[in-house]
Design a protein around this nucleic acid. Structure first.
Ligand SMILES: NC(=O)c1ccc[n+]([C@@H]2O[C@H](COP(=O)([O-])OP(=O)(O)OC[C@H]3O[C@@H](n4cnc5c(N)ncnc54)[C@H](O)[C@@H]3O)[C@@H](O)[C@H]2O)c1
Ligand SMILES: NC(=O)c1ccc[n+]([C@@H]2O[C@H](COP(=O)([O-])OP(=O)(O)OC[C@H]3O[C@@H](n4cnc5c(N)ncnc54)[C@H](O)[C@@H]3O)[C@@H](O)[C@H]2O)c1
Lengths: 230, 230
DNA sequence: AACAAATTGATAATTATTTATCGATATATA
DNA sequence: TATATATCGATAAATAATTATCAATTTGTT
């Protein structure tokens, strides 16, 4: 089975950002960047050249000062009375948040959620190479889902060994989450995007980002209760 | 087709929390509550009676002072040298973040992601009634997914009219997200859990909570870059 | 050329959130 | 009973994030 991975691609020189350009970047700012990008892409496709912080802020229901502060991290400077160059902003933001072109995604657990994520357009759109899924179910191994091969979990160590930054997307049942994470770490993965509700213990050099839907449910519930008093 | 909705259930008296118990509750605290619950449920199932803030903090890699401050919102007081009663904490947290027992979930767009979410155990576990899905695809209408009926989107107004707090989970393609949101609002929905990458415009009385995976991808990418300098 | 309007970017103020300090208290143990 | 220790909860300090203020700049208009 052919696996389309970063190794097969023309590898451009990875341009490392000066460390201090990244250092000041805070979580809320990083999380807003893709939202800015979406607006900028849209405006760009409509043929617009410039945009003001106020316009972006209105689209996102945030403050324009926040937008200007965030955009300052790109190094792009706007013109008074005019705004910012859309194309320069797109480049500037992508420079900060795009993965390098050797960043590979491996999805572990091709079940309900995993299968949906294999069809998630965001991976490619944001510059990630989604390579393959791994599962332990013999009925799934050897099939493809959304054109991505489903491989035996036993093969993971050799597959993940392709060069580059490797991200594991963890979609296995909670009761095997920790042990699966440990396999990932042993395979040399540098980051885990964790969709299980398990708090993973991993070594310090591995980044874990957990997507916890129950947190969101709690926010929904509390907001509705607060609203009941209005 | 039978639809199991809140109307059919024994409706307990809804116990409204005193407004000021909710007012001070901040977003980070609300988001941590389900994590505490998970630990408490686990400890409880192991037969433990009490737990210290330090223990909880260690499990979640956060500071124990944060845990104590959060727990103070429940009104439960711990004992020095002993810790907190696990069962009291569970009650106290659930009192704050559980939806009332007439909170219904309707899922719009039974595609890849929608189908996965229909199988998400978290809804029931956290006290929501997941009622049905709606779709525009005639091949899906009339089927069931994870035992939930898929109904015609045209039926939404009459179905959503069942009493209670209604939450719409939006899993339609981005290009119809805004118009679908407007249908939801017209149907009397009070909150939208938005999985599309569209910034929805809704009236003030409607709560929107957006799950933006591209924000997470950006965080992963930046964290990996920062790590490269270590 | 003078003036008005829009918009940036720097600095300051405010608010939110996390982390530190420490006295008080419940329990176990010597 | 006295002492040591774990732990809470209150208060204070530090850090992070948002929001306000305003001078400077660019452009359009009279
Ligand atoms: N379904 C959802 O919408 C949803 C939402 C949020 C979070 N989650 C979480 O995502 C995870 C997966 O949920 P799901 O609904 O897709 O479950 P699922 O049972 O449909 O899928 C789990 C998949 O993992 C595979 N698997 C089991 N053990 C494995 C192992 N040791 N190695 C490799 N693969 C293994 C199974 O064969 C299956 O294909 C769970 O932890 C769940 O809590 C699911
Ligand atoms: N697939 C993922 O993992 C993923 C992850 C994050 C976000 N999302 C977002 O979730 C949304 C759905 O993604 P998907 O992958 O499930 O797409 P999908 O195409 O598989 O599903 C969309 C569903 O919506 C239905 N639909 C279309 N128009 C409708 C209308 N007007 N009213 C009711 N139903 C309608 C379609 O029939 C289909 O069943 C998209 O906005 C996507 O960006 C998807």
């Amino acid at each position: 089975m052919e696996i389309n991975c970063a190794e097969d691609q023309i590898v451009e020189k990875i341009e490392l950002l000066p460390e201090n350009q990244l250092k000041g970047l805070r979580l809320p700012t990083i999380r807003r960047f893709p939202k800015y990008l979406r607006i900028l892409w849209e405006l760009s496709s409509m043929g617009r050249d410039v945009v003001s912080s106020e316009k972006i802020a209105n689209e996102l229901n945030i403050d324009s000062i926040t937008v200007r502060k965030d955009l300052a991290f790109t190094g792009i400077i706007g013109k008074p009375k005019i705004g910012y160059s859309i194309s320069l902003l797109i480049n500037g933001i992508e420079r900060l948040i795009k993965p390098n072109n050797q960043t590979n995604i491996f999805l572990i657990g091709a079940g309900n959620l995993g299968a949906a994520l294999l069809g998630y357009k965001g991976f490619e759109k944001h510059g990630y190479n989604i390579i393959a899924a791994f599962d332990s179910d013999p009925y799934k191994i050897g099939t493809t889902i959304h054109n991505k091969p489903v491989l035996s979990i036993d093969k993971i160590t050799e597959i993940v060994e392709i060069p580059g930054d490797n991200i594991g997307v963890l979609c296995v049942p909670g009761n095997v989450a920790q042990q699966t994470a440990e396999i990932l770490v042993k395979s040399g993965i540098r980051a885990i995007w964790n969709f299980t509700n398990v708090e993973l213990k991993v070594p310090g050099h591995v980044t874990v980002l957990s997507e916890d839907l129950s947190s969101s449910l709690a926010v929904l519930s509390v907001n509705m209760k607060k609203n009941a008093y209005k």
